[in-house]
Simulated assay, not measured.
Amino acid sequence: MGVAGMTAGCAFLYGLPYLLPRLRADGLSLTQAATLVACPIFGLLATLVGWGALADRYGERGVIALGLGGAGVVLLGASVVSGPVALGACLVLAGAAAGSVNAASGRLILGWFGAAERGLAMGIRQMAQPLGVAVAAVVVPVLSRAGALTFLAAGCLATAALVAVVVRDPARSAAAGGATGNGNPYRAPVLWRLYGAGALLVFPQFAVATFGLVFLVDSSGWDAATAGRLLAVAAFGGAAARLLAGWWSDRAGSRTGPMRILAGTTAVVLALLAAGAAGVPGVAVVALVAAAVVSVSTNGLSFTAVAEYAGPGWAGRALGIHGTGQNGVAALTAPVLGAVVTHAGYPVAFASAALAAAVAVVVTPLHARA
């Protein structure tokens, strides 16, 4: 159910870039349209920590169901409004509501799974982000704006009802302890380094997710539907990469060791994509697909490391802060890189994403597990 709820929420939160060609056809510039599709993330930023604190205090089931249900209702309203300002306001509100599933579903993993299983379990949960993007990649480009928003609303409402019926909160006494026992985990720099590394690694992830389709359309002459199908396949590869990364971290007994290796791999692949965008023949499409797979692979590892280090008494808030930093970068990625693409081109945009992944290798702590 965590996967189902996250998939519905992520299809909306992170799948709206597939509306970019239609929004541009309506007369918006790339920068304006990119800002509009980032609006849900701005709403998310305002509420993630609050949702996490509510989950710490009252449990996960009610928090997830309430948030997803609220997002679905607001998205239905967004499907009938006119004008970019009204649409943007609705998207901000829906994103604020959908933040519940991001903060609380990770806490469920901490409560129900032991340390030797938690990486794979969180990897399964984190599959939802690329799966949600894959659903959006297939469906959103072929629907009208109103039809796409109605489809996304239906997914949120259906999974909210299922979560309310199926999910059972873990007993608080059953949750495994964190690396700091009952103490304040912010007294050491480990969480802050995890936050920083996670935020840096979101930049290449959303550079590819936001501009992959429009790059294929603008630079390679693909039609939006075909490009969406290719990126949907890549998103399923990204889901598998998250599973494998979680399994690897369980076997290695470390979240941050695999995270550093995958961050370095992401930097290399994004550098190849930048070279392909600059005109190196035969590189661009292959590198884009590879980047769509590997750039999402570290997300579950960073969430698991944060939850484990914080412990059950702090996990909801810690994950909320972690998600706030990541989604803050995600929200800025679309408008900032939209401007970079407009004035400097795709090679510079993708090269900057490669640099962020390289810096994340250094920022990621060597050890962050109890």
Rank of each mutant, 00 (worst) to 15 (best):
L213R: 03
F215Y: 13
G59Q: 07
S352A: 15
G276H: 06
G43S: 10
Q205T: 09
A174L: 07
F42Q: 10
V359Y: 11
Q32A: 15
A104W: 03
F203I: 12
V362E: 09
V133G: 01
G316T: 08
G123E: 00
F206R: 00
W314F: 13
G5W: 05
N182V: 12
V306S: 02
A8E: 07
V81C: 10
G50Q: 07
A153I: 04
V340S: 00
A153C: 11
A360M: 11
A153H: 03
R57K: 12
L23E: 06
T180C: 15
L30F: 03
S297H: 06
V163I: 14
A263V: 03
L120W: 04
N299Y: 15
R107I: 05
L45W: 00
A370P: 15
G59N: 05
L149H: 05
A274H: 07
G5R: 02
Y346F: 15
L194P: 02
A351H: 08
G72M: 07
V306Y: 05
A245G: 06
W192N: 00
V269G: 04
V133M: 12
F42C: 09
A292D: 04
G323P: 00
Q32R: 13
L76G: 13
R260Y: 05
Y309N: 07
L108G: 11
G123W: 00
A274F: 01
A351C: 11
A330R: 05
G212D: 05
A245R: 04
R251N: 06
A234I: 04
L216N: 01
V329W: 00
L230Q: 08
A349P: 04
L36H: 01
A136F: 10
V289R: 03
G328A: 14
M1N: 11
G83V: 07
I124Q: 10
L44I: 04
A188W: 07
P17I: 09
L120C: 05
E117C: 08
D223F: 12
L66F: 12
V268D: 06
G238C: 09
I64S: 02
